[in-house]
């Protein structure tokens, strides 16, 4: 059987909210090392992956590897029944067709349990090799959220370029053009408020802003985000979930036809 207890249950709610619009039906792979998911969106333009480590849970038990087919929209509806300070426990039997979720209030004076019906889902798994990035940028997640939101009011696509000047985001639309350049900083009070840029080679890639905006739904999970740009490859946008794991998004670039 599988059983996992998370004191900070709101993280699970935030994670599901961060991915449910891109992927609706997904497989969660459970093993004694934790919970993993990898899924492409319906149009196969982007890929979402998360990892929740077993040691990030307050209690984690998995007797043998399980695949749970989950409708994320339905899971999100169920998680709406949990309070923001609730402790969440998930349980599934080895051959069961439901995932049981239990929400306990902080004082443990209110307990909700809900069974979510599981599904059988056919999904493709992509092998993503370790890559040598052209440029790696770490920035406050609120900064990333603001850039992609602001540029969405100018156009549908963004050119992202890394040069010795910094990282430049440029959007072009019917009403005009906009450029936002981020330079490396070191003066912020907290380390995570700084922008860090590590560039190995200049790179320029074009992406659909709609997806980059969707990735910003993970902002509540982490104060920082890492953006990896690689020549002629999908951009990778990483949010580390403190003491628990990560959610990563990959977006295929727009290419000249």
């Amino acid at each position: 059987m599988f059983e996992a207890r998370l004191i900070q249950g709101s993280l699970l709610k935030k994670l599901v909210d961060a991915i449910k619009e891109l992927c609706t039906e997904v497989n969660w792979d459970i093993s004694n090392s934790g919970i993993n998911m990898q899924s492409m969106d319906g149009s196969h333009v982007c890929l979402v992956a998360f990892n929740l480590r077993a040691d990030g849970f307050d209690h984690f038990r998995c007797d043998r590897p399980l695949t749970l087919g989950i409708n994320l929209g339905n899971l999100a509806k169920i998680l709406k029944c949990s309070g923001s300070n609730d402790i969440i426990t998930m349980k599934a039997d080895d051959n069961g067709d439901t995932l049981t979720l239990m929400f306990e209030s902080e004082k443990q004076d209110r307990i909700t349990d809900v069974d979510l019906k599981l599904m059988s889902i056919e999904s493709e798994h992509l092998g993503i090799p370790d890559q040598d990035y052209s440029a790696e940028t770490s920035m406050p997640s609120s900064e990333y959220q603001r850039i992609v939101r602001d540029l969405s009011s100018i156009g549908d696509t963004v050119n992202i370029s890394a040069t010795k000047e910094g990282i430049k985001f440029s959007a072009m639309g019917d009403i005009g053009t906009a450029n936002i350049t981020l330079r490396q900083t070191s003066s912020a009070d907290k380390e995570e408020e700084n922008v860090k840029i590590e560039m190995k080679e200049p790179v320029l890639l074009t992406f659909a802003l709609r997806y980059l905006n969707n990735f910003a739904k993970a902002t509540p999970l982490s104060s920082t985000v890492q953006v990896f740009l690689t020549k002629d490859l999908p951009v990778q946008v990483n949010y580390n979930i403190q003491d628990l794991g990560y959610v990563k998004y990959y977006l295929a670039p727009k290419i000249e036809e």
């Binding site: 333009v45 992509l126 092998g127 993503i128 090799p129 696509t157 295929a252 727009k254 000249e256 036809e257």
Partner: peptide
Amino acid sequence: KSGQSRMESFFQVL
């Protein structure tokens, strides 16, 4: 004119 590429163009389906 630029077109949208798909994930399978970059990573192998296992």
